[in-house]
Each structure stands twice: as structure tokens, then as C-alpha cells.
Design a protein around this nucleic acid. Structure first.
Lengths: 229, 229
DNA sequence: TTCATTATAGAATAACCGTTCCAAAATGCA
DNA sequence: TGCATTTTGGAACGGTTATTCTATAATGAA
């Protein structure tokens, strides 16, 4: 019936998201978007009413792709305390250009949070989501004795989402990696590693010997973890 | 010899700094600056070669006024641990509009950190400065027994500067104050209050009874603080 | 008072912004 | 093979941007 689209809507959105991620909302011109997506001006305005709508869609796409991937990684590791620790270690050890790019949510929070209520609400929701995943895993960690006495999962989760944002800011100006490692170390000081703990309690002779074939071993041991004192 | 200036250079810079603080670099037009400072276009360009130079000067002014004031407040309180704690409590309990405005350094780090090396270096330096003040006070706190065993002053200082940035981001999107309080509580969990400690060790009957007239009392008691266990 | 010098106010400039518009191209159905 | 319909590429538009330029005003020294 009609002429078919020459572009893929999802691919276009992904590219747009990357441009906004790298250059910010104000820093991205329609020309930039046309160039990076390969999609024409008219087609862009055919798909979205204006620049802001495309930006909002980009943020939502970011939530689907990046944030949910982070959530998955947080949920994939056992025991729970190690999942949280590993998450932050990977963050801090990421390649420099990855760190410099920062996070679309952090960048947008700072750039538009004060003037665009809808953007602010979207980002606030994402922060809460991650905080709750942190919290869930920390509750679990507490249950298996991976939290130092007196550490409250919710309060620590709220520290962690804050530290995550702080690292995004620091790495934007090329902060020292060693300093960020220290920050993470302090933030995670209330979380015991399963390995260390098993070692400390003299139970794990072959602790952390690479990949355990069964997959049950790690989990099973995690459930055995008990507070030291 | 020549016509005298009709404006005060320092006052002009202060106003410019406030505009950049509130609206960011890209978000601030020369027109905005002319309006808010009351100084004419030509005079602006007479004082600074271009917008970026005025922005750099604004950041340096911010360091003098705001950052150094924070440093002073961190150094003014005794004992050291309480200074750090009070600093973060005041931060989190600030009025909403003050929180929303955020920090010029945080905002600029995110907006320009990736593309302007000079801005990035300036901000990195400021972060380091505050980190070192944190560290100095934490070393002091450790000396008087205000740090939980095993807490390393430097590592904790690096957490604190990161948390400070994180809170700046969170508050930009209007994050829940309760959540920020929790984050701070967790971040400060390794620092004991002198009051609590004195109380716990049964030494402080008249602890914190308003203003002590001598000024020596608080300081003297602070030096008596000793680890609990 | 007259002159040299600088500040001032605002017009002018050229580039770029987001958005709109339009003619040409490309398709599936009749 | 036409026709209806939609995409496409790019020109056009009005507004804003940072910066430059110019004519005028204001001053202290001579």
C-alpha cells in the first residue's frame, strides 16, 4: 500500500540513546541524531513529535537495556553479598572510556532534573528500583550472615545507590581509580565475602578454586554461612 | 584619564557564578548574564575574552566562596568526628530549594567533565581538596578513638567525597530526604559521636548542655575520648 | 575647556537551533 | 500498469546563539 520504512525503529532508538548518553540533551542536535542514526529529519519527526519525546524514549530504552541488565547481574550471583560486591568491583574496574561516559540517568538527573519534572520522576523511579534490588539482596545477605552486626539492609542499600551516583560523577572528571576503589571498599565494609568468611571459620579448605562444576556447591555453602560472633 | 567602570568586577563575577550554578554552562546565555549581572555585553567581553573564561572564573570563585566555606565548617567543630557528622547532617537537612540547586562542581563535572580537560582538572582538584580535609579530620578522629576499629581514614574520606557527589545527584531529582538520611547514616556508621560515646562509657552527665562558656570543655572532653572495647 | 582614553549600549553578524514544509521516490493493491 | 499512501531528502523558517563592531557617553589630565 505505502512506501516501507527504510529504517528500523528500535535500532534508531538505540543509536539516539547512545548519542544522548554521550552528549547530553542540550548537547545533542537534531543534526547529530540524523547523522548518527542515519535516519532522516522527516522520519525522526514522523516517529516522535519532538526532540524531548525522543529523549524520554531514549531514557526508557536505557532502563530496559542498561538498568535491567545491571539488575540481572545483581540477581545472578550467589551468595547475595558477593553479588553486591562484584557489582561494584566491576563498576570500578571498567575501562576508562566506559567510566568517562558515565550513566545516562546520572547525566540527565543533573542536566534536567531541576527543570523537567517528567524526566526527574523517571530517573527517581529508576534509582528506587536499583535501591530495592540492592535492598533485597542485602536482606538475603543478612539472612545468611554475610552482614556485619548492626548493619541495616535498607540503610546500606540507600548508601549504595548514592555511592553509585557519586562514582558516576567522579569518573566523569577522570578521578583516580585507586580513590574509587577505596570508596567502594569503605561502602562495602559491612558485607563479608563468603570466601573470606568460610576461610575465617576454618570450614573452606578448597575455597574459591575457580569454577565449581555442580553450581550447587557455592549456593549450598552460602546457606551455611553464619555470623562469626 | 578614562571613563570609570560602572560595575564592580567581583560582584559581577558572583552573579555570573550564581547563574552558571543555577542553569549550567550551555543553559546560560550571554543575554542571561547581561540580565542578571546588570553588566553590558561589551563590558563582559571587556572583562573576559569569552564565555568559557568567565565560566572558569566562576568556578574558581565558587572554590573560594563555597568550597572553602565548607572546609572552614569542617575544621571549626570539635571533636573531629562530630565535625564530619555535622557536615553531612546539615547537608541532608538543607531546605529543598537549596538541595535542588545542587553543587556547581557536581553539575559542571557531569556537563563538561568529558569534553573540557581544564574544567575537569579544576574540579578534580577541588574534590581532592575536600577529600583531604575529610581525611585529616578522620585521622584526628581515629587518634581520639572516634573511629570504629579497622576503619581507615583515607578510605573512608574517599567514600565521603563520593557520597557527597551522590547526594548532589539524588537531590537534583528530588530524592526522598529519608533515603538520603539513611545513606548518610550508613556512610558515617564507622564514626562514633563524642556524646554517645561519653554517655556509653558513663562519663558524661552534663553532656551537650547547650553552649559551654569556656570553649575548652568540649575540646578537652574530646581528647579524652577512648575506644569502647 | 579640550583631548585621549575607556566604558557603555545596542545594532550587526554569521552560525546553528528545533521544527515545518514540500516535492520526489517507492511501495502494495487494484 | 496506474493509483493511493507513506517515507524520504533536503530546503526553508523563525528564533537564538556567541561574538564583533560602532557610535556615543563619561571621565581625568593638560
Amino acid at each position: 500500500m505505502a512506501r516501507p520504512k527504510a529504517y528500523d525503529g528500535t535500532a534508531m532508538l538505540d543509536r539516539a540513546m547512545e548519542v544522548f548518553w554521550a552528549r547530553g540533551f542540550d548537547g545533542t542536535s537534531i543534526q547529530n541524531l540524523v547523522g548518527k542514526t542515519g535516519v532522516n529529519r522527516g522520519s525522526l519527526y514522523g516517529a516522535y513529535p519532538d526532540k524531548r519525546a525522543l529523549f524520554l524514549a531514549s531514557i526508557r530504552r536505557y532502563l530496559e537495556l542498561v538498568v535491567e541488565d545491571n539488575v540481572r547481574r545483581l540477581l545472578a550471583v550467589e551468595p547475595a553479598g558477593d553479588a553486591v560486591r562484584q557489582f561494584f568491583l566491576q563498576l570500578v574496574e571498567a575501562p576508562p572510556e566506559r567510566l568517562r561516559r558515565g550513566c545516562l540517568l546520572t547525566n540527565s538527573a543533573v542536566e534536567l532534573g531541576m527543570e523537567d519534572a517528567q524526566v526527574a520522576a523517571l530517573i527517581r523511579g529508576a534509582f528506587r528500583r536499583v535501591e530495592q534490588v540492592f535492598c533485597a539482596r542485602l536482606v538475603e545477605a543478612k539472612r545468611v550472615g554475610q552482614l556485619t552486626d548492626g548493619v541495616q539492609p535498607e540503610a546500606l542499600a540507600r548508601l549504595l545507590i548514592t555511592v553509585l551516583q557519586g562514582i558516576r560523577v567522579m569518573s566523569r572528571v577522570g578521578a583516580d581509580r585507586v580513590a574509587m576503589r577505596d570508596a567502594v571498599k569503605s561502602a562495602l565494609s559491612g558485607i563479608k565475602t563468603a570466601a573470606t568468611h568460610a576461610y575465617a571459620s576454618g570450614r573452606g579448605a578448597a575455597r574459591h578454586s575457580g569454577h565449581s562444576k555442580s553450581g550447587r556447591t557455592r549456593r549450598a555453602r552460602a546457606k551455611q554461612v553464619v555470623p562469626v560472633r
